[in-house]
């Protein structure tokens, strides 16, 4: 009940500033587009595909934060494990290295396997580490999550080695040509896989009994407990869902980048978290929008004319994180909530 919006005049100045920044960004994009429409559009398709990956990972952050208010630092590394597990399953166990209809089927199987594995790992982590700290001071689970992140990275080293491991993609390396614009097939596949997954997720959260219980638990854990919801199970299920999405993202990442590396999760995880913040942490649709937005921003920065270029990617991404968290901690849609007294 006791949440209020602060109506200090500072916020008007900030929203004005926000508008100015937005206008500048739009102008910049138009400038970039007009200098090289073909490159721009091609980069945009890469951005959309990257954005889809970020959205998948961001959902895991946002769901966990929504339900137990924990920034799960280890989530990015779980995604990394997903890609490593996928690569081992697909290449080393089932020996698929060439593009063929059979390989595509096995790729689908790989994805299910990685999703299941990551879901289980995430549930295990929650049960062993976070569950015991649910009522501890807030710093404790956060530090634990950082620790888990390092442990997962080292599991990655054990499975994948400390050097990047190059892999082969089973997706066709061809491109579709739409006029002057070439779109790589793999990017289309990423989007084609992600969209149904996101829809499925929305359906689970919005329409199913479990989804309703999830939302109730996120609202008020104690009340949900009193209403007969098995809160432990719901939280566990949330981790499983987030893990499954991270696993799917991992396999897609593997197919797009043809590489697995133990430290892929750290930066990508941070970017995905930025996406979650952009959309408002706890807001599922927001996470997807944020993910796509960031994917596009990153691709433009890396490849489109008049942007900073790849050596500044992190600076651009994390500046967005910092600016968002400071000025609009509730995300582009959300409202900032005040503490209860």
């Amino acid at each position: 009940m006791a949440t209020a919006e602060r109506t200090a005049p500072r916020f008007k100045v900030e929203s004005l500033l926000g508008m100015a920044v937005l206008t500048a960004a739009v102008a910049w994009i138009i400038w970039s587009f007009s200098s090289g429409p073909v490159i721009f559009t091609q980069v945009l398709t890469i951005g959309l595909s990257n954005g889809a990956l970020y959205a998948l990972i961001a959902l895991g952050y946002t769901m966990v934060y929504g339900i137990i208010e924990l920034i799960n630092f280890a989530h990015g590394d779980l995604f990394m494990l997903g890609s490593v597990i996928g690569a081992i399953f697909l290449e080393e166990w089932l020996g698929q290295t060439k593009s063929s209809p059979k390989a595509w089927l096995i790729l689908a199987l790989t994805m299910l396997f990685a999703m299941a594995a990551c879901a289980l790992i995430n549930m295990f982590i929650e049960k062993v580490a976070y569950r015991r700290l649910r009522n501890a001071p807030k710093l404790a689970p956060l530090i634990t999550a950082v620790g888990v992140s390092f442990i997962l990275q080292n599991v990655g080293i054990l499975m994948n080695g400390s050097a990047p491991h190059s892999r082969t993609s089973v997706l066709p390396s061809s491109s579709l040509e739409l006029g002057p614009i070439e779109v790589r097939v793999k990017y289309i596949v990423v989007v084609a896989v992600t969209v149904p997954l996101l829809l499925l997720m929305t359906w689970i959260v919005q329409k199913t009994r479990v989804g309703k219980a999830m939302r109730a638990t996120a609202q008020d854990r104690d009340a949900s407990l009193l209403m007969g919801i098995n809160v432990d199970r719901i939280i566990s299920f949330t981790f499983a869902l987030g893990g499954a999405l991270a696993g799917a993202a991992g396999v897609l990442f593997l197919e797009v980048n043809q590489q697995t590396r133990y430290d892929a999760g750290f930066r990508l995880g941070l970017i995905a978290f930025t996406a979650a913040v952009l959309g408002g942490v706890g807001n599922l649709v927001g996470a997807v929008v944020g993910g796509v937005l960031l994917g596009v921003i990153q691709a433009l920065n890396d490849g489109a004319p008049h942007f900073f270029g790849q050596q500044w990617t992190q600076t651009v991404m994390f500046s967005i994180l910092i600016i968002m968290v400071i000025f609009r901690p509730g995300g582009i849609f959300g409202k900032h909530q005040q503490e209860k007294v």
């Binding site: 807030k138 994390f318 500046s319 910092i322």
Partner: peptide, 18 residues
């Protein structure tokens, strides 16, 4: 420093990366 503790952790991490 206006931020909540967990956000603070992330933003400082962001600075540490930038």
């Amino acid at each position: 420093l206006r931020l909540k503790s967990d956000y603070l952790a992330l933003v400082t991490l962001g600075f540490g990366e930038i």
